[in-house]
């Protein structure tokens, strides 16, 4: 018997300390790994992408932006963007702690997106469709004139080519720096949706984490079919505001997609891995 087993030590360090010389250390490229914000599970970014940015450990749906949704939905990741170069004007010459135009310019630089929504047309399981998806990383996915106009143009495309519409909402609500212009985007998008309805073209609204404020109180809740990703926060007033109003703690699960489904405002909840198939199936059934 060896000395180790006698003292019940299973492993023994032969040399003390870290002995790898600095020049032999391997650098890990930035963004090669993804750690889940919920359960802390670590996977490679490649693996994370293959699960549609959903944690394989706990099923947490990471917040993703328009590019990723286009990748998930459109066949072979092939699509044509509608008005990709559209950017925000500054109708009110708004300045808070920072000039609005600078805020927009910085966000464009930071995100590589031109505003909080992107629109595109392509094929989903062989079916023609138009998708508008929001970019939460762009000023909190807030709705200003560009978001309204993108949806408006997307609807024009649907009307012209008789295509169904899918809007993927992910927004903190109104863009305050556009004040009343932002508010009127609610009326604008809802008004345009009446044209889509009149033309009997299906509209599927997918609510993702988070969908709140003026987005909830306009196009997000107006789908022929309203669906959501699991666990998404969906509401009109944000949870903090509701809590301040009632001066009590909020019940567990309040304003989650599951709660909203239970209250009767969603048709179903869909996991991202099933999203494309479910949307295609729904469109097929509508188109009969």
């Amino acid at each position: 018997m060896t000395e180790e087993s006698e003292t019940m030590v299973w492993f023994k360090r032969v040399k003390e300390g870290i002995n790898t010389p600095t020049e032999e250390k391997k650098e890990t490229p930035e963004g090669l790994w993804y750690q889940c914000g919920k359960c802390a599970k670590v996977v490679t970014s490649e693996e994370h992408k293959s699960t549609h940015w959903v944690c394989s450990g706990c099923g947490y749906h990471e917040r993703i932006n328009s590019k990723e949704y286009f990748h998930i939905l459109f066949d072979d990741n092939k699509y044509i963007e509608i008005a990709p170069n559209m950017t925000s004007g500054d109708p009110l010459k708004f300045t808070d702690t920072k000039k609005y135009i600078d805020r927009v310019a910085d966000s464009i630089k930071k995100t590589g997106e031109n505003d909080a929504a992107s629109a595109a047309h392509g094929k989903i399981d062989g079916l023609d469709a138009v998708v508008v998806a929001m970019n939460f990383n762009f000023i909190g996915g807030s709705m200003g004139s560009v978001v309204g106009e993108k949806i408006s143009r997307a609807i024009d495309h649907c009307l012209k080519y008789k295509k169904p519409l899918i809007i993927i909402s992910k927004s903190g609500g109104a863009r305050m720096m556009e004040a009343a212009f932002s508010l009127m985007q609610m009326a604008k998008t809802s008004a345009k949706l009446t044209l889509l309805a009149k033309a009997k073209l299906p509209y599927i609204s997918l609510m993702t984490d988070p969908t709140t404020g003026g987005v909830t109180a306009s196009f997000a809740m107006l789908g022929d079919v309203n669906i959501a990703e699991p666990g998404a926060l969906i509401g009109f007033a944000g949870p903090r505001v509701v809590k301040e109003t009632i001066k009590k703690d909020l019940p567990k699960g309040f304003q989650t997609a599951e709660f909203v489904l239970d209250q009767g405002f969603l048709d179903f909840i869909v996991e991202r891995k099933d999203l494309k198939a479910k949307i295609a199936q729904t469109i097929k059934l509508f188109q009969n």
């Binding site: 009326a187 008004a191 009446t194 109180a217 809740m221 107006l222 009109f236 007033a237 909020l250 309040f254």
Partner: peptide, 17 residues
């Protein structure tokens, strides 16, 4: 709280439409 439970967002959206 009850306004959220009963769909404040949906109610307003429906009216706009």
């Amino acid at each position: 709280l009850e306004a959220e439970e009963r769909g404040q967002g949906e109610a307003i959206a429906r009216n706009l439409f």
